[in-house]
């Protein structure tokens, strides 16, 4: 069996019905381990105290905000180049999940920043870039929701997604430049590669757990979308055959 055979939506539904329960269990176990390590094992920061533990969810959210976009870009490529029947389903379903993770990254960043900066929001380069990414997600969702025909919506949003891929590095660069122009390094920065192993291990486990959660949510959303499209097609056939 070739890989392309999995593109058949019926086979996809069958396959995911088998895989999803196991994947959900693995996700729950990873979360259990990760949360245990974060709450009981990981050390509190000598400056920030327990507040630093927001990092263990904030960093995975930020990572997933980008990972979702990469997933969408891959799917968009599949839609435009290979006309893969599942690609636009995947792209459409990743967008709201990506927007949610991006929103959570912004919200947790804001909560983390409040004790650091004394204010809920600063126009720091990283936060600002993530905010722009969030707006792009919302724009993509709005585009998909506005065009009623799924095939046309998929092509339009695939083009916008890929334009975004080209533009995101430019946006990131511009925002960095804009920010340093106004605010030279006044912002708290995480210690980069000097992060201790006692913090790194729980962080990686949490990141894995959230990535698995994304997979579960994404597959579930894709199943719903396939079924929704089938219902739509059936109703259109019903309308045509009602004479």
């Amino acid at each position: 069996m070739r890989l392309i055979d999995y593109a058949n939506p019926t086979r996809f539904l069958g396959l995911t019905a088998t895989v999803l329960p196991w994947l959900a269990v693995v996700t729950a176990l990873t979360f259990a381990v990760g949360l245990y390590l974060v709450v009981f094992v990981a050390p509190a920061d000598y400056q920030q105290g327990e507040t630093v533990k927001i990092m263990y969810i904030h960093v995975p959210f930020a990572w997933l905000s980008m990972f979702c976009y990469v997933t969408m870009a891959g799917s968009a490529f599949g839609t435009l180049v290979w006309r893969h029947p599942l690609a636009d389903v995947s792209a459409k379903c990743a967008a709201p999940i990506g927007a949610a993770f991006t929103f959570l990254a912004l919200a947790t960043g804001s909560l983390w920043g409040k004790p650091m900066w004394g204010t809920w929001w600063v126009w720091d380069a990283r936060l600002t870039s993530v905010l722009v990414l969030f707006i792009m997600y919302l724009g993509l969702i709005a585009l998909q929701e506005t065009i009623e025909d799924p095939a046309r919506a998929a092509k339009a949003s695939a083009i916008l997604t890929l334009v975004g891929v080209v533009n995101i590095p430019i946006i990131k660069f511009s925002v960095d430049w804009w920010n340093t122009l106004h605010q030279p390094s006044s912002v708290f920065r995480m210690g980069g590669s000097t992060i201790a192993a006692s913090m790194l291990v729980p962080l990686l486990i949490m990141a894995t757990a959230f990535t698995l959660l994304f997979l579960v949510l994404h597959l579930m959303a894709m199943r719903n979308e396939i079924l929704r499209r089938r219902i739509r097609a059936m109703r259109m056939i019903e309308a045509a055959g009602a004479e």
Partner: peptide, 10 residues
């Protein structure tokens, strides 16, 4: 769908 109620907020 397509009503655009939240488009203004965006």
């Amino acid at each position: 769908v397509g009503g655009g109620a939240l488009m203004g907020a965006l």
